[in-house]
Design a protein around this nucleic acid. Structure first.
Lengths: 338, 338
DNA sequence: ACCCAGAATGTTAACGCTAACAGAGCCGAG
DNA sequence: CTCGGCTCTGTTAGCGTTAACATTCTGGGT
């Protein structure tokens, strides 16, 4: 119908002709410029509707230098934590009118992070969120490409970038103090890999709480966050008679620990109390339901977008921000008074 | 340094001047056009390196009409299944040189899916993968926007779009036959929400297997995939004395069932055998370790990209494809001979 | 009646790239 | 030695939008 020939999608000029105005006026309508007569505006809108016009965002991005796309770099989005964080990021970004382009890393080396950063800046993203829980990833942020605003999630001291994170130290402290308050002499720990900042933070909080209470800190066992590694550490712990309380650095490993204890006939919480970390949806239904530390991943994702947008929109003032989200204790049935 | 003034990133013309050639020759080098003298090529490459030039993909996309970006629409990427699928998609897409722009839906209505589709086509994606396990989402695909190639994952009969999915019926059958082969008289089921195609498929497979064995099919209980709903269904089942085998439509609900049975003193697998579905990383460490049906989400993601790229690159021939990935039984300790 | 500010619109020029064509140089066949 | 046909390179013209400037049209103050 009309003069629009072929199947080529209509462009601004087509709308302009249809409405009997210049393409610039169409642009003004689209961008809600105030100086357009409301009658003209209506006529243009009508033409837009009639032709089914949609503005070409690529052309727009070329001239405005803003793609309204944010990049997200994350490690293994299959895991609950990263997945929830990325979800929060995506929701917040879209609510703010931004697209989200994602890169999931399988390995976490500096090279991989740098590649991902380059890749995204090539695409012309307006800003980047790096979910970088490993020390190596965080270090990669120290040398940013050029002027692309960046926010690190769980990024420790991430060089130039702003940081949004959960207070891991506080989480470790909460878990440990909870166990001590139940009358346990001391608290053992199954920690995460040493490359992970979160693991370090949780160890620090645990150590601090023990020290404050004047209790000895046993040598922590180390897992790799997987249920299997928790299972193996749990088997070691089961054979040690003086263990009455264990702080496991994440819920998945805690599941492995519960499994090992069950197999070895160690009753939880009667003989040993166990606290996890993360509060994954499953942990409420472990046997027994797991006392754990909740991290509000959604809040972390939302905050990271807030910080990033502030940085993008407030051009000059790029003061580094550091936003810390508090964790909370979720008491359930895996812990009991000694 | 050199003649490049200010902090403005270099463009093709800058490289051209530096190398003493025309910008078109630079373009040729970048696009690996054969007709460039190798000496010239080297000189251009040198200039590129010297200036740290990176080509502007937005400008490129404007003229080529290809953004090399794929859109992914998914429901709740917090869940293990969607998260793994999206991960597989992202890996495969990036390996093929495509960016991935993601939209996570919180609600699954047709409107939401259509909005997401519009949103992504506005951005100028070259193709879209919709992870649409619900009937309503699949229906939304029936009315596609315009010429954007689309692939549905778990999309049943998704109108025009190609489909990649796991054979849910086969999965339901595998689970049921496994239990029957262990000597159970019949198999109960806790199914997923009726809006989900996957839930329907699993019910169909279960029913088919029972029918083939000439056994009665009890009325299935319905959950919403969450551990809690499994827990509640499990409590009902625990009170029924003739239940010896239960097929639970996903692992999370199976966890809830195990929890309920444990509380009620029903021993698994001595009194009741339980089979789950998905093989999430945790299920090997449930108490007892869960027999389940594994879905290869990674393969689904990879295949969906293969199909999509075939559709994008082979312009005219848009024959609908349908690719089915087989599930497999993972026998563990939650099932035993009657 | 006149002028001027401001509103409303139009015209032109980028943005940074690739496509299409044009031209220069070179080789071997006739 | 001339011509056709290669290879290599340059020139020009868009892609569809917004920005900047130019122009026309109002309406009120003098």
């Amino acid at each position: 119908m009309g003069s629009t020939q072929g199947r080529r999608p209509p462009v601004m000029a087509d709308v302009a002709k249809e409405a009997g105005v210049s393409h610039q006026t169409v642009s003004r309508v689209l961008n809600e410029h105030p100086n357009v007569r409301s009658e003209t505006r209506a006529r243009v809108q009508e033409a837009i509707d009639k032709l089914g016009y949609r503005r070409n965002l690529v052309a727009r991005a070329l001239v405005t230098k803003h793609s309204r796309t944010l990049g997200v770099v994350s490690f293994d989005t299959t895991l609950y934590g990263p997945a929830s964080t990325v979800y929060g990021i995506e929701q917040a970004a879209r609510a703010a009118g931004y697209f989200v382009s994602i890169v999931s890393l399988k390995s976490i080396d500096k090279l991989g992070v740098n590649d991902a950063l380059d890749y995204l800046t090539d695409q012309g993203v307006d800003g980047i969120v790096v979910v970088a829980p490993q020390r190596s990833a965080a270090q990669a942020l120290a040398e940013l490409p050029f002027g692309v605003p960046t926010v690190a999630v769980e990024g420790g001291e991430a060089g130039e970038a702003s940081v949004v994170c959960v207070d891991q130290v506080e989480g470790g402290r909460l878990a440990t103090e909870h166990l001590l308050s139940l009358g346990h002499e001391t608290v053992w720990q199954i920690r995460g890999p040493s490359d992970w900042l979160e693991a370090e933070g949780r160890v620090a909080g645990w150590r601090a709480a023990l020290k404050q209470a004047g209790r000895p800190a046993p040598e922590p066992l180390t897992g790799d966050w997987s249920p299997r590694s928790g299972y193996e550490a749990g088997r070691s712990l089961a054979s040690m008679k003086d263990v009455t309380a264990v702080f496991v650095a994440n819920d998945q490993m805690a599941l492995g620990v519960l499994r090992a204890f069950t197999e070895q006939g160690v009753r939880v919480p009667d003989q040993v109390s166990v606290v996890g970390f993360d509060d994954i949806p499953e942990s409420e239904f472990f046997s027994p339901p797991l006392t754990t530390i909740r991290q509000d991943f959604g809040a972390v994702g939302r905050h990271s977008i807030e910080v990033l947008l502030r940085q993008i929109e407030g051009q000059g003032s790029h003061e580094r921000e550091r936003l810390v989200v508090p964790p909370s204790l979720i008491p359930r049935a895996s812990t009991a008074r000694r």
